[in-house]
Design a protein around this nucleic acid. Structure first.
Length: 416
RNA sequence: GUGAGUGUAGCCUAGCGGUCUAAGGCACCAGGUUGUGGCCCUGGAGAUCGAGGGUUCAAAUCCCUCCACUCACCCCA
């Protein structure tokens, strides 16, 4: 028997109310902040992602779904949302628009990871990017959206972690200080951290090994190594967050896994502990547009994982609006009645009333049972008597009351 | 990529060498009402017991291999 490919999942009808709830929140929040939707292709040229994420990130090294098309071009299923949006910004000359350009997306994301709770090989991310402005008010706006989005969804007990990891001006000096500190502990580091010390020293800070955490505890802090411009930017950001009354805590060990981040980085997590806990994160990426061939252009953004949000909506027991029920299920007895039922359904659909018609020629009991199982509000019964009198018997499935009305009156009756 | 756990009908579970021609619950279908659902009662359909191989007179049950799923690590959303 075939089953969905590893790490992928069907979003079944009973799951859909959660997705609609999330989609509604996305549409509301982006409208509220003036972010315009953009949909980029599901695959891009491989080099776009190689250049943007960073050569030594896990995404590029082992998580990309890369393939050659028949023309021999290397393509990759998008492993993150930001680079394609930046590519589109450049390609369509959006630097000619008033800056910043505010864009948002809801897109499938593909990463070849070992699946586990809250982690899929195909998952969905909702993201916002504000491109073309370095004002810390933009960072604050992005964080504000991410935060309010979760409120809109009904999630509570979330924490917002914030940090600044500097810019190309000040980071090299900080990295040197950091490396010097870690070199004193080389013998005590885990194998991964020994690698990180060489390839990606920032990542040393968020190692989860207990022994490495102790070392990270007293490591030099990135915010102590910021240049004047970055320090001021971070200070302003915190002030704005304060004005908006968004609670945050500074996490000196928050660095994020992608190389393109500059200055601001942040993550949103549920308070309770859990493996794959982060439900959203982002930051500033002032160098990315230029790296991808555009003019030097500052930008900031965030992305949130929909599956993890839904996981938390369920965990927190957030009540979700349900689908409107089927208005009427049309029941018929006999060949002529069946013809009338089909005509009637057509009229109802034309009038914008949801209706389904029984199939086959089952007993009245069986048809009503089906109406009940489907959750129909009414059953419209057409039997021999009704055919003769050109009426239908309308049964309210909640209280069992029923009345006989003219066939032509049904649509009007159900509209009210 | 690493480690641990689990695979019995659509779902949940019992059985853990012979009484298994695999049991029960939910869901599904039908009947109990000649034209009336939900509750109840009765009945029905639905499983090569994840796959392949081995041990044995005998395997859902023991062994091996593979596959899948789950959880965790790495990393991320």
């Amino acid at each position: 028997m075939y089953q969905a490919a590893r790490g992928t999942t069907d979003i079944l009808p009973e799951e859909q109310p959660y997705w609609r709830h999330v989609e509604k929140a996305i549409s509301d929040i982006t409208g509220l902040y003036g972010y315009k939707r953009i949909d980029t292709p599901v695959f891009e040229n491989t080099s776009l992602f190689q250049r943007s994420a960073g050569e030594y990130t896990d995404i590029v090294q082992k998580e990309m779904y890369t393939f050659d098309d028949r023309g021999g071009n290397s393509l990759t299923l998008k492993p993150e949302g930001t680079p394609p949006v930046c590519r589109a910004y450049i390609q369509h000359g959006m630097h000619n628009l008033p800056q910043p350009v505010r864009l948002c997306y809801l897109s499938p994301i593909f990463r070849y990871d070992r699946p586990q709770a809250g982690r899929y090989r195909q998952h969905y991310q909702f993201g916002c990017e504000a491109i073309g402005d370095e004002d810390p008010a933009i960072d604050a706006e992005i964080i504000d959206i991410a935060w309010r989005f979760n409120n809109l969804l009904g999630l509570t007990n979330l924490s917002l972690q914030l940090n600044s990891i500097g810019c190309p001006e000040c980071r090299p000096a900080y990295l040197k200080v950091l490396k010097d500190y870690y070199k004193k502990y080389t013998g005590k580091l885990c194998a991964d951290c020994k690698m990180r010390l060489e390839k990606n020293p920032l990542r040393l800070l968020d190692c989860k090994q207990a022994s490495c955490q102790q070392i990270a505890q007293n490591a030099p802090r990135s915010i102590d190594g910021l240049c004047a411009a970055c320090a001021d930017h971070f200070k302003q950001l915190q002030k704005y967050l304060g004005l908006m009354e968004i609670p945050f805590s500074i996490n000196h060990r928050l660095v994020r896994g992608l190389d393109y981040y500059t200055r601001t980085v942040f993550e949103i997590q549920p308070e309770d502990e859990g493996g794959q806990s982060t439900i959203g994160g982002g930051g500033r990426f002032d160098g990315l547009i230029e790296e991808l061939g555009g003019k030097p252009t500052p930008a900031a953004g965030f992305a949130a994982g929909i599956e993890r949000i839904i996981l938390n909506l369920k965990k927190q027991g957030v009540s979700i609006p349900t689908q409107p029920p089927l208005q009427v299920f049309i029941v018929h007895l006999g060949e002529e009645a069946r013809n009338e039922a089909i005509k009637l359904a057509s009229v109802l659909h034309g009038a914008g009333i949801s209706a389904a018609t029984a199939t086959g020629s089952k007993s009245l009991k069986a048809q009503l049972r089906q109406a009940n199982t489907l959750g129909a509000k009414y059953a419209a019964i057409i039997g021999g008597d009704e055919v003769k009198a050109k009426t239908v018997t309308l049964r309210n499935m909640t209280d069992g009351q029923q009345e006989t009305i003219g066939a032509g009156e049904l649509a009007g009756k159900l509209t009210v």
